[in-house]
Computed example of a mutant assay.
Amino acid sequence: MAEFPDRPITIIVPAGAGGGGDTTTRLLAKEIENELGEAITIINQGQGGGVVGLTSIRNAEADGYTLGLLFPYAGYHYTGQGDFTVSDFTPVANFNGDSSALLTGANSRFRTAEEVVEALKETPEEYTIHCSGACGSVWDIPIAGMLLDLGVDVAKIRWIPGKGAASGLSELASGGVDFQAASLPEAAAMTEAGQVRPLTVLSTQPVPGFEDVPLAETLTGKPVDGGTWRALGGPAGIPEGRVKILQEAVLAAASSSAFREAMDKSGFGVQPLEAVALYEVMLQHEEDTARVMEALGY
């Protein structure tokens, strides 16, 4: 029998071209091609906020030749857009992770995250937080979870959906919203320009390039790790032997100097995880999302 793989592989990206998911996947795919010696075709399916792409991944033939970008998906269930669980997919390996941060405008009266938490405890209904996209997703859910743990009635905060971090940051800088949940790299240009100010980041260690941003641990008293993860996976049922080959290729690609340099240049974090660890990340994501979405009233 021919060795796997013996023909090109397709990777479905449940996002439009040019975004973070598309960019990071294309950078990874270039290195995977070198590892496997087979061409990789990227197909963008961002319709329905990614639901179409995730559905295509779930319904693909489980032969290892059709893979896809997996990312925090559990929120779709609570917004009525889809019902994906870890059992629908075969985790292969994680390659990217970026922490969520809470930001405010440069002209805001709030100078620290501690001040924000106290204000939100007293009158949460008076404040708005931009979600950097659809609410109930990768940036706002971790922030809401942290605030919930700190005693804030998160359901009373006005969570504002948008078309992405860029438009939200413009609104934040102009004073249209009080706060925003986003990644620090996304806000880098406006932070450097003095238009927005990061207050805290949900990371267990300082984010490279943003070492002055306080960690959420200063608020909670314990390490906090929240944000997005990006991984390769496929439909449920890919044979174990093929998963192992794919996992080794992804991890080798994610560890390559070319990939790490390209990701660093683009402002994305590298976080390689084997399939077993990725499975646990997905389970924890589903549990955390359920808790926060219930608190938010979805």
Rank of each mutant, 00 (worst) to 15 (best):
E3Q: 09
P8S: 10
I9S: 05
T10K: 15
A15T: 11
G18Q: 15
G20P: 01
G20F: 02
G21N: 01
D22H: 03
T23L: 07
R26H: 07
K30D: 01
T41M: 12
N44R: 07
V51H: 04
V52N: 12
R58Y: 09
A60P: 09
A60L: 03
E61I: 15
G64C: 07
Y65K: 07
T66D: 04
G68E: 00
L69R: 03
G75M: 02
G82V: 03
T85P: 09
V86I: 02
V92D: 06
V92L: 05
A93Q: 05
N94W: 02
G97Q: 07
S99E: 00
T104A: 12
G105R: 00
G105W: 03
N107M: 06
N107Q: 15
T112P: 11
E115H: 06
T123S: 15
E125K: 10
E126V: 11
E126L: 13
T128C: 11
S132I: 11
S132G: 07
A134Y: 10
W139P: 04
D140Q: 10
A144R: 03
G145A: 06
G145R: 14
L150E: 14
G151S: 05
V152N: 12
V154R: 06
K156D: 08
K156G: 13
I160Q: 06
A165Q: 08
S167A: 15
S170M: 13
S174P: 09
S174V: 04
G176L: 12
G176N: 14
Q180D: 12
S183F: 12
A187D: 13
A187F: 01
M190D: 14
T191G: 09
G194Q: 01
G194I: 11
P198F: 00
L202S: 08
V207S: 08
P214Q: 12
A216L: 00
E217A: 15
P223W: 14
P223E: 02
V224C: 06
D225V: 10
R230I: 01
L232G: 07
G233I: 02
P235R: 01
A236N: 13
E240A: 11
E240P: 03
A254G: 05
S255W: 13
M263W: 05
M263V: 04
M263I: 12
E274L: 01
A275Y: 05
L278G: 04
M282S: 08
E286K: 03
E286A: 09
E287Q: 15
T289K: 01
A290N: 03
V292F: 04
E294F: 09
L296I: 02
G297Q: 10
G297I: 01
